Simulated scan of single mutants.
Amino acid sequence: MKQKLARIIRLGIKELYSLKADPVMIILILYAFTIAIYTVATGAKSEVENASVAVVDEDRSMLSARLRDGLMQPFFQTPVLIEAPDVDPAMDGGTYTFVLEIPPNFERDVIAGRRPSVQIAVDATAMSLAGTGATYIQSIIRQEVAAALPKQVTASPINLVISARFNPNLMSTWFNAVMQVINNVTMLSVILTGAALIREREHGTIEHLLVMPVTPGEIMLSKIWANGLVIVVAAVLSLTVVVERVLHVPIAGSLGLFIASAVLYQFSVTSLGILIATASTSMAQFGLIAIPVLIAMNLLSGSTTPMESMPVFLQTVMQVSPSTHFVALSQAILYRGADFFIVWPQMLALAVVGCGFFAIALLRFRRSLMSAA
């Protein structure tokens, strides 16, 4: 057993040296866990920020002025006053995302209790921004009308209190930053291990391994621990430096528990990379197979959309994907501060799925070695 362990460690060190001699992979790792995290977290926002808005004010009253002033930054840009005939050309040209149309005699009709209509034209091609922004504008209109005419506001029979936990300001940056780290862990784990095996074939070093006193299982384990170590270290540094210090996103849970989960995840996802590599004869073919697999794993793992919103059969199918369980436990640990007694079912699922992927990959790897011999 000691000899087997020593061989696995030495082979793993060889993998680290091979990775060190591959500047393209090193640059990819550095980019994926630094610049890619920052740009996705700060650029792909789902909340309303700096949205363009115009106002058609045909009333020119104090109340209509309050409505214009209520469209404030950072949610909206400074409202632009336009005329009614200019609405359609401006919306067709994509000049404004929102156009608020206030009819004539609006303030007088409100005071008289006639319930006048206010139209909000929305450019729904920006779907997420359109839905959220329209809700913001409706809320602003209600608040400003209530503030201007407090005597006409009927008290609600209930006091509704909304408490947003884990992300009190509802900032998409908090969600995007951590989920991008998780997605990049999946992507690079598959790419690094698969590329390591393909590199052995292209450089002809696979024949050297065949004449050494090592087993296919030892070769696989060496590639798993070496490449997995690089990914885990990069992910932890990205969380502590880029996410926490640069983006100021708090990490609620135990970093040690996350590292333990990430190590367990590496066992399954790197085995998947080796499995794909055994079905490939070149890096180009490996990429063609890996890309759709990675896209499906990332989009359907719950990191982009909630699992509950997917069809039931897809939820069932995705239970065989290790990324589904890793995303669930990562969100529980990093967002909600969950401990081991909460996430152990996902960790157990990771172990079971990992053993399955490892067994299948080992069978395929043995066959590929026999064919190479």
Rank of each mutant, 00 (worst) to 15 (best):
M187V: 15
A262E: 10
F98M: 13
A177I: 01
R114P: 00
E200R: 07
L210I: 14
P250F: 04
S368F: 08
I289S: 10
A146Y: 07
T270Q: 14
L11V: 03
F106N: 05
T193E: 04
V352A: 15
P168D: 11
I102S: 09
A84Y: 12
S46C: 00
A196E: 01
K223W: 08
T240P: 03
L255T: 10
L299I: 14
S323M: 15
A51P: 02
S238W: 04
Y335R: 14
T305D: 06
L288E: 02
N159P: 00
F98G: 04
P213V: 03
V87G: 09
A155M: 05
M307H: 05
R367V: 01
D92R: 15
G204C: 04
D109C: 01
L288Y: 00
A328C: 13
N183T: 06
M62H: 07
M318S: 12
N183D: 07
G131P: 00
N184D: 07
V40G: 00
Q319G: 09
G131T: 10
N298V: 14
S64A: 13
G43N: 10
L19T: 04
V242S: 01
L300H: 04
E218H: 00
E202A: 07
M283W: 02
R66E: 02
S52A: 15
V353W: 09
G12A: 12
L288W: 02
G228F: 12
A130H: 08
K151E: 13
A147R: 13
A338V: 09
A164P: 04
G256Y: 09
I274W: 05
A51W: 02
L300A: 12
V230I: 14
S301D: 13
A296L: 14
S301H: 11
K223C: 09
T132M: 10
A164D: 12
L239E: 02
V24Q: 08
S330L: 11
L334K: 04
R115P: 05
A351W: 10
A338G: 09
T270F: 04
Q346K: 14
M307P: 00
T193W: 03
L81Q: 11
P213C: 08
I140C: 00
G133P: 02
